[in-house]
Simulated assay, not measured.
Amino acid sequence: MKNRLSRILSCIGIVLVVCSISLCAYNVYDSFRSYFVSQQKMNEYHVVKTSVGSIPDYVLNPDMDMPEVDVNGMSCIGTLEIPSLDLNLCVTSTFSDDNMKQLPCRYYGSVYKKNMVIVAHNYWFHFGRLNTLKSGDEVIFTDASGNQFKYSVDAMDVVGPESVSEVTNGKWPLTLVTCTLDSQNRIVVRCK
């Protein structure tokens, strides 16, 4: 009886180890898949100049919609560059689970209104290293018209997943959000 119980427990242990390894392998695969998709989208992304005069359109009308570029069937509003993390990624115009599996997404606001929130998965090649940013690190958003907005990291918080109002309060011109590694909370990087 004791031998049989130890064999059953051993089999259960082996199954759990195999499941753990499989889950880890899938997460690594998913992270690399998103990296290759991101690189493909960046290669296909082209700025479309919309401003005619010397004063950019968004200065004359900050309430205007952000221009969008179609990148292989996906609507993007610009690119996000974080030099200290060696990241340069397209940002989709709308948030959805499908979009976020490929690229960071605008969750809320506009760079023109100085209240934009960008969310991405914590993939290594997306926002997985946001927690390593330091105060003063540079963040650059370039809209689809080629207008560049430079920010620096001002503050970093960890909030609960239901803290949407804390993330979209508009006190910072740019906010970056991703999940913690255990997906229980959100890392929020505030940029000014």
Rank of each mutant, 00 (worst) to 15 (best):
E162A: 11
N131H: 15
K114T: 00
S183W: 08
A120G: 15
M156T: 10
K114F: 02
Y112G: 01
G170Y: 09
V119S: 11
V164N: 13
C179F: 05
D143I: 02
T168M: 11
L174G: 03
I118E: 04
Q184R: 12
H126M: 14
V153Q: 06
T178H: 10
T180Q: 05
K171Q: 13
L181W: 07
S110I: 10
S110H: 08
G146N: 10
D182V: 04
K114A: 10
G146F: 03
S152G: 07
K114D: 09
K113P: 06
G160L: 12
V159W: 08
Q148P: 04
T142M: 11
G109S: 08
S163P: 00
N115T: 09
Y123F: 14
G136E: 01
D182P: 11
K171A: 13
V117E: 06
E166D: 15
Y112Q: 02
L133C: 00
D182R: 06
F127E: 05
N147L: 10
P173M: 00
S135Y: 13
W172Q: 13
N115V: 05
V164H: 14
V153Y: 01
A144F: 02
D154L: 11
S145Q: 02
S145L: 03
D137H: 05
F149Q: 01
V119N: 02
T142S: 11
N122I: 07
S110F: 05
Y112W: 03
L176P: 02
Y151D: 08
S145F: 07
K171V: 07
K171E: 14
M156P: 02
W124N: 13
D157A: 13
E166M: 13
S165N: 14
S145Y: 01
F141R: 06
N122Q: 11
E166K: 15
Q184P: 00
A144V: 02
S145G: 11
T175N: 00
V158W: 05
L174F: 01
L130H: 03
D143C: 04
S163K: 10
L181K: 15
S165W: 09
E162S: 13
V158K: 12
S110Q: 05
N147H: 14
V177R: 08
D143E: 06
S183M: 06
M116S: 08
S165F: 07
N122L: 03
E166I: 06
V177A: 13
G109L: 04
G136W: 00
